[in-house]
């Protein structure tokens, strides 16, 4: 599904070149559940953003579902990720002005899906995540765990093949974190959604089938 070969990414500060990613080569098959670990500044989030096509890279080859991402233009990349990838953030990143229902509905709006169909899809999702009762609340009225559930629900509504989660439990207490990981596990096992998560916690990393450890932009260890 994903194939990264010799990916480099750097920034120039003055006359120095700082590498964010060094020679990353990685293959991920459909249906995998992967954890990326590593200390702060090791390039975890950068790698995730590169995979998610939110960020570019300077050198290397990237194939996503057979497309040569390194050759695509900005707009084509955007179309690609919008179609296949769902994002989950540490800080949830819900739209404050929208209710739970509207937040989940938003991605569908941008895909020109008919109103009746939209309603059915949102209702299904609300049901699946057990948040039907919260649908008219605004993000500020929810707990962190609930907000993150909404975030995941939003990421899943368009039925993406891949979920990218950047420290999804980072702001949650252990019980809430546990719930979120259970949701991921279920998604991965029952629906075959590929999941890549960045995490600091050994416990959460253990949910994955494979763990990749980064250090200073390099892959240190794979297991």
């Amino acid at each position: 599904m994903i194939s990264l070969q010799h990916i480099f990414k750097w920034v120039n500060t003055g006359s120095n070149r700082t590498f964010l990613l060094r020679d990353i080569t990685l293959d991920i098959k459909q249906g995998e559940f992967i954890s990326i670990m590593g200390p702060s500044g090791s390039g975890k989030s950068t790698l995730l953003n590169v995979i998610g096509m939110l960020d570019g890279f300077d050198e290397g080859i990237y194939h996503f579902l057979g497309e040569e991402v390194h050759k695509l233009k900005e707009k084509q990349r955007a179309d690609l990720y919008k179609k296949h990838i769902g994002f989950v953030f540490q800080a949830y990143h819900l739209i404050d002005e929208l209710t739970v229902y509207e937040n989940i509905e938003t991605p569908l709006l941008y895909q020109d899906i008919k109103s009746s169909e939209r309603k059915a899809m949102v209702a299904d999702t609300l049901d699946k995540f057990n948040i039907v009762g919260k649908k008219d609340l605004f993000p500020a009225q929810l707990s962190g765990g609930q907000q993150q559930l909404v975030g995941i629900a939003r990421a899943l509504i368009t039925k993406p093949k891949l979920i990218l989660a950047d420290e999804p439990t980072g702001n949650l207490n252990s019980q809430q974190g546990e719930e979120v990981m259970q949701v991921f596990k279920k998604l991965n096992e029952e629906e075959g959604v590929t999941i890549i998560q960045v995490t600091h916690s050994e416990k959460n990393a253990a949910y994955a089938s494979r763990t990749i450890e980064l250090l200073d932009g390099r892959i240190e260890k794979q297991s």
């Binding site: 939110l54 955007a78 919008k82 994002f87 990143h93 819900l94 739209i95 404050d96 002005e97 938003t106 991605p107 941008y110 895909q111 939003r154 990421a155 368009t158």
Partner: peptide
């Protein structure tokens, strides 16, 4: 900015 970025990430194009 946050709202706009999120809308982009969940699928809005510039015209929308």
């Amino acid at each position: 900015a946050k709202e706009v970025s999120l809308r982009k990430i969940v699928g809005a194009n510039r015209l929308q």
